[in-house]
């Protein structure tokens, strides 16, 4: 797995002084600094409502930060000259609720943006789609509609849909939280493989097994602030902050 720090790989994501306030009073994210280098896997954990999703959504500007700077692959997102659609095409996002397009078949879900954004031909886009579906293990579902699939299959299609765009970064927002327990593994397996192939990933999850296996760094967020950052084993076994300890006491057996 990619190293970080020093003169290692290039910087992929940089959040500097990031703050997001909703309705002038809800401080969802407060002065967050975070750098993610190419090939790095960062897992974000924290209590519900602590601002994890908001941080993630600022990385592709689904939320516009109130303050601070966001740089992705060298593009300054808040610079009005930046073409945000261009950057978003390079940043895959996987949602808790899958958000597949229910009126389109699996293959149409995966080819839509390839054709409209990447300008690929139908045949080319379908080739890519089948390749990605094979990679996530369900090539036989190409012509199914999302509602005909199990939750785990839907989430894998959502991952395939993002990967078909050849993204440089993948963002995951609690990708297994809406799944029945027996389907969590099939999704995590796909993510683990992706991590081992060197994809740059930022993952919000409560799956500590995944964090241990795949994360280069674990970020603990509470009340919109980064409380602690470090290698997962270290943060688990030896948290330096009381708030981190209290959180893990609650979620770990």
């Amino acid at each position: 797995m990619a190293a970080h720090g020093g003169t290692g790989p290039a910087q992929m994501i940089s959040l500097r002084g990031l703050s997001k306030t909703f309705d002038r009073t809800i401080h969802a994210v407060v002065d967050v600094d975070l750098e993610v280098v190419e090939g790095e896997v960062v897992v974000i954990v924290g209590p519900s409502g602590s601002g994890k999703s908001t941080v993630l959504r600022c990385i592709n500007l689904l939320e516009v930060p109130t303050e601070g700077f966001v740089t992705v692959d060298g593009f300054e997102l808040l610079d009005p000259k930046t073409d945000i659609d261009h950057v978003r095409a390079e940043v895959g996002m996987v949602f808790q609720q899958f958000n597949l397009f229910p009126h389109l078949t699996v293959i149409e879900n995966i080819t839509l943006a390839q054709r409209k954004v990447r300008g690929r031909s139908r045949t080319e886009a379908e080739e890519v789609a089948v390749r990605q579906l094979t990679r996530v293990g369900i090539p036989e579902k190409a012509d199914a509609y999302p509602r005909q699939l199990s939750g785990g299959q839907q989430q894998r299609v959502a991952i395939a849909r993002s990967l078909a765009m050849d993204p440089k970064v993948m963002l995951f927002d609690e990708p297994t939280s809406a799944l029945d327990p027996e389907m969590v593994k099939e999704v995590l397996d796909v993510m683990l493989e992706l991590a081992s192939e060197g994809m740059t990933m930022v993952v919000v999850t409560h799956e500590m097994g995944f964090a241990k296996a795949a994360a280069d760094r674990l970020v603990f967020i509470d009340e919109g602030e980064i409380v602690e950052v470090g290698p997962p084993e270290e943060v688990f076994s030896n948290p330096t902050h009381q708030r981190t300890r209290a959180f893990f006491d609650k979620i770990l057996y």
């Binding site: 689904l62 978003r88 996002m93 958000n99 397009f101 839509l112 943006a113 765009m165």
Partner: peptide, 18 residues
Amino acid sequence: IPPGQSEAGRSLGLTRRQ
């Protein structure tokens, strides 16, 4: 239509219009 639908579209790089 749930906002997640257009968020999914936008995060794939589709424009607002698309």
